[in-house]
Design a protein around this nucleic acid. Structure first.
Lengths: 207, 207
DNA sequence: GCATAATATGAGCGATCGCTCGTATTCACC
DNA sequence: GGTGAATACGAGCGATCGCTCATATTATGC
C-alpha cells in the first residue's frame, strides 16, 4: 500500500503499527497542507505533527513528493466514493435529469474537504499533481463523451468532443469556483439556484 | 525623495541605466518563470540571467515577491492593452454580438504570452498573485454585470449576479483551458468552432 | 576637475530544506 | 528469554534559498 516507486523503493508495511504510522503521516500531510500551505509543509514538520520521526517517514515514502501524491490519491478515492453512485445512474436518464445529476455530483465532489481541494488545485507543483487530479477531469470528460455519443440523435449536429469539452470545463469551473472560493459568500439557496443555473446552461447549450 | 533605510529600499530609478536594469530584471524573471518554473526561479539566478548582480536586484525590488508582482503587473497591462478596444464596444451591441466579442477578447487575453500566463495561474503562491490577477477576473465580472443590468429586460428574470458569475466563470475556464492546455492539440478551425460554441453556450443560457 | 549622489558588485550569512544513516527499540517466532 | 527482522529514532549533512553590506564604479552638477 505505501509503495510509490518514484525514485527509490521503500519498505512494505507488514505490521499493524507501521500501517498506523503511514496513515498518521498521510493525515498529517493533509492537515499541514491545509493549515500552512505547501511551501511550509516540510518533511520535518510533517513527521513532527504525525508524532513520528523523519527517519520513519522516509522508510515508507521515498520523497516529499510521494507523500503529497499519497494525499492526492486518498482525496481522489474519497471523491470517487461519494460520487460513484450518482454518476452510475445518469447513463439512461433523459438529458435534463442527467445533467442535473452530473452538476450535483460535481458539487459533491468539490465539497469533499474543500480546503484540501483548494490547496491541491492551487499550490501543488505540477510534477506531483497533474497525474491523479487531472485524471479525475479526464474521467469526467470520458463519461460525458459516452453520454453524448449514446444520445447523439437527441442533439443538434456538433463535434461531440468539442461539446463535451465545453460542458465539462464549464461545470467544473462553476462548481469549483463556487465551492472553493465562495462557500462562505453563497447561501444554501444560492447554491441550489446555482445548480439550476448550471443545469440550464448545459441543457440549453446541447439542445 | 532622499535617503531611506537600506533594509527595505525600493529606489526610484532616476537615470537611464537603472531603468534598463529594472526592465532587464523583470524580463529575466518572466523568462525564468516560464523556462524553469517558480520553484527554480531564485533571485541569484534571476540576477544572473538579467546580467546584473543580486545587490542591484535588491536595490529596486525589496523581495522576490515584489519581482514576481512586477511581472504579473506587466502581464496584466499587456492584457488590458490588447483587450481594451474589443471590450469598449460591447456595451451597446445586441446580446449575441456582445457575447461573441467578449469570448473573442477572452481568447486574445489568454494568448498574451500563454506560457507565462500558465505559470502565473498555476505556480505562483496566492500571497503574491491574488491582488492583480484575480483583479482581472473581477473586472470582467463587473463589466459583464454592467451589461446584464443595462439589458435586463431582454432576459428572463434571474439573479443577475448569479448569472454573471456563471457566464464569466464559464468563459474564463473554457478559453483558459483551451489556450493554455490545448493550444497544440486544437487546430485553428477548432478554435474558431470553440468561439462559436462558447458564444452559443452563453447566449442560449441568457435568453 | 572634483565632490557627491546614484548605481553596481558579489562573497557570504543565517535559515531552512529534503534526506541519510548509525543506532535504539519493539515485534514475531521458537 | 533469546534472536533476527521490522520498525522507530533524530542529529546532522550538503545544498540552496532569500537577502545584506562593505566596497567599487559611474554619472551628475558645479
Amino acid at each position: 500500500m505505501p509503495r510509490k516507486p518514484l525514485t527509490k523503493p521503500r519498505k512494505q508495511a507488514s505490521q499493524e503499527r507501521s500501517r498506523v504510522t503511514v496513515d498518521a503521516l498521510v493525515e498529517a500531510t493533509a492537515r499541514i497542507l491545509v493549515k500552512e500551505g505547501f511551501d511550509r509543509a516540510s518533511t520535518n514538520r510533517i513527521a513532527e505533527r504525525a508524532g513520528v520521526s523523519v527517519g520513519s517517514l522516509y522508510q515508507y515514502f521515498p520523497s516529499k513528493e510521494a507523500l503529497v501524491a499519497a494525499v492526492i490519491e486518498r482525496h481522489r478515492q474519497e471523491i470517487m466514493y461519494t460520487v460513484r453512485d450518482t454518476l452510475a445512474e445518469i447513463a439512461e436518464l433523459p438529458l435534463e435529469e442527467a445533467v442535473r445529476k452530473a452538476v450535483t455530483a460535481a458539487v459533491k465532489a468539490h465539497r469533499v474537504d474543500p480546503k484540501l481541494h483548494r490547496v491541491l488545485a492551487e499550490q501543488i507543483p505540477r510534477t506531483a499533481r497533474l497525474k491523479k487530479l487531472d485524471g479525475l477531469n479526464r474521467d469526467a470528460f470520458a463519461l460525458f463523451m459516452g453520454y453524448l455519443e449514446a444520445h447523439r440523435n437527441e442533439f443538434r449536429k456538433v463535434d461531440l468532443r468539442l461539446a463535451a469539452f465545453v460542458c465539462v470545463t464549464s461545470i467544473e469551473a462553476v462548481t469549483h469556483t463556487a465551492v472553493v472560493h465562495h462557500s462562505e459568500t453563497f447561501s444554501d439557496e444560492t447554491f441550489a439556484a446555482l445548480i439550476d443555473e448550471a443545469t440550464r446552461l448545459i441543457v440549453r447549450y446541447l439542445k
